[in-house]
């Protein structure tokens, strides 16, 4: 038998196997994206909001955030539609009102699947000014959990994201995540007007 030559039958079998593997990988990716796409459907605008009242803030002195919103409107969709590998899977804008300030930051999000390490797929959203990142875990079509920092190698590792100002200036940037009360937020879907 000539071991150095591939016969047409073998080549066809190999290609079929490769095609099957590619299809299986694609199907797995589609399944893993499902919870993310339920919360952030393709080509659809969206808005998620959480606001805290005075009694909550009084009970949580370690929290600086009064209102936090995630907008996916026309500018974010425009970034998603860029014909470039640099285009985000999902573009968002974080709108933040703390006890003392108001600021916003554009975010580029990519899906992550950690297999056994994470109970469900999530998004890692990086500041477009390269000032850190947050994680977003969809909890259904109308709810997302926003977290900053988390557990890795068995211990909690804090993180922070810079919000506000312009990319060329560090002044006016709020670093969210330093205070314990500013590391996890549950946001609910709201009408688009709430994010405008």
């Amino acid at each position: 038998m000539d071991h150095g030559t591939l016969r047409p039958g073998q080549l066809a079998s190999g290609l079929s196997a490769l095609l099957l593997l590619t299809q299986m990988a694609g199907a797995q990716e589609v399944a893993e994206m499902k919870p993310i796409r339920a919360a952030f459907p393709i080509q659809q605008q969206g808005c998620f909001v959480r606001a805290y009242d005075a009694s909550h803030l009084a009970a949580n002195p370690n929290q600086s955030v009064r209102r936090i919103r995630l907008a996916r409107l026309a500018p974010e969709q425009k970034r998603e539609a860029l014909d470039s590998p640099g285009a985000p899977t999902i573009g968002l804008r974080l709108l933040l009102r703390t006890r003392t300030s108001v600021s916003t930051e554009a975010l580029d999000c990519e899906a992550r699947y950690d297999g056994a390490a994470a109970a469900q797929p999530y998004l890692t959203c990086r500041s477009t000014c390269n000032r850190g990142s947050i994680d977003l875990t969809p909890l259904g079509p109308d709810s997302v959990r926003l977290t900053i920092g988390g557990v890795a190698s068995g211990r909690f590792i804090p993180d922070a994201i810079g919000v506000g100002g312009t990319c060329a200036l560090d002044t006016g940037v709020i670093w969210l995540g330093d205070r314990e009360g500013d590391r996890s937020f549950l946001l609910a879907r709201a009408g688009l007007e709430m994010c405008r």
């Binding site: 950690d114 297999g115 390490a117 890692t124 390269n130 850190g132 990142s133 920092g149 988390g150 890795a152 190698s153 590792i157 804090p158 993180d159 990319c167 060329a168 200036l169 560090d170």
Partner: peptide, 30 residues
């Protein structure tokens, strides 16, 4: 940071250690 530590925890310990390099330049402020 957190993202790199978490990413590395999910990979083979013999793999590369991931980092990020942040650079600023004289002509582009912060």
């Amino acid at each position: 940071g957190f993202q790199q530590v978490r990413g590395d925890a999910e990979r083979n310990p013999a793999d590369a250690i991931t980092i990020e390099l942040i650079v600023t330049y004289r002509d582009s402020g912060a």
